[in-house]
Amino acid sequence: MLKLENVTVAASNGDGEELEILNKINLSFETGKMYAITGPNGGGKSSLAKVIMGIYQPAEGRLYLDGKDITSTSITERALMGIGYAFQNPPRFKGLKVKDLLSIAASNRDHGNIERLLRVVGLCPRDYIDREADARLSGGEFKRLEIAMLLARNPRFVIYDEPEAGVDLWTFEQLLGVIAGRHKANASSTTVVITHNERFLRAADEIVLMAEGEVKERGSADAIWPMIEDDIACRWRTTCGGELDEAECYR
């Protein structure tokens, strides 16, 4: 189980002012469950993933993995403990090839496995294994590679940040199958999918709704769905200094 206790993350807004991008988050993710996190843009979903991965340090609060306090551990240590994160916007690497990144991710696995993983995410190994993982790969290709890298690591706590973004209509089903299938096949793994996609939301055991750096609701798809339909997120969106009143959300 991964648990966040009163986690607050502050960042500077560029004008020397600190703002809280996560505000006193209390959340626990149980082993074996699949979670979907959704909510309006800027609501704090990716920031939550980053604080779990160790990329952001909390100003307050603590994180526990299976009861162990991991608040002050590094990114590398968390990776080695089995936490994995597929970025929303993964960085490109000049001069590193697809196979280089996958071998780093797999660390000790063989080449055959890398080829299998590429096929799993819908990239033909023959065409991609020697391509450079730089700006020349397309957005969707890169997103698939990012997922293959996470699969290669095979972490027990895995976060996908909008895996559906940029993935074409024809292979969306396959992607959903890969993520949900991997989850089902590993009883001891916890899967968190940050998503704006209904299919992913419905595939999850539990949905967490985040807005304004806070967890606003959590529950089963059946419980949360009506609230989403209600455009609940709109009410939590900062209302432009009061100009946008709540009623407008329902028009």
Binding site: I75, L96, I104, A105, S107
Partner: peptide, 19 residues
């Protein structure tokens, strides 16, 4: 990104430069 794949900061720098 490389550190999230288990590399130390030094290993990550060396990997990026070699590439």
């Amino acid at each position: 990104k490389l550190m999230t794949m288990g590399l130390t900061e030094k290993e990550a720098i060396d990997t990026i430069l070699a590439g």
